[in-house]
Amino acid sequence: MNCKEIQNELSAYLDGELDPAMEEGIESHLAACIVCHREADNYKQMDDDFRRNLPPVDPSPAVLVRSLERISHRAAPGVRNLWRAGWAVIGAAAITILLMFGAHQWREYHEEQAILQRIDSYSARVPIRNVFSLSRYDNKSRDPFDYRSNLAGRSPFQIVTYKGGPTAASQRGE
């Protein structure tokens, strides 16, 4: 091994982490090479300097008391479970409301789409005046401009009359 390779292994050598053969190789190199020997010596001095001057320390006695307080506070199951249950109920209610609202919107949209589709297909086949004449049978609605309230329970023939056609009043000649 050359000096560079030896110096790359010095750290593990100083920590006693090399296999015996490698360790022996390094020791014989260090015995012969002043540069690598000085390098190893330097590392060793530094390690000793740090170990000597930065001794282990203990925490203050209050740390145990505070830690036990935190642990016992955290471990109080009654309060914690109550909070958890409360949040679970709120979460479930919020999800249910969202789902119901979504389902309602979806249903309304598809109902309107189906009705409009039927109107379109009928309008393509029947002269518009015939469509208007069918509105005479509409005896339920008194307000033909109230489109939404008139959608429910009507045939598409009746609804068409409200989309730009004559009003019930004009049909009666008023």
Binding site: Y13, L14, D15, G16, L18, E23, E27, L30, A31, I34, H37, A40, D41, K44
Partner: peptide, 12 residues
Amino acid sequence: MGGVTSGAAVKQ
């Protein structure tokens, strides 16, 4: 040059 090599590889 034995200062380093003598005890270096012994894990304290």
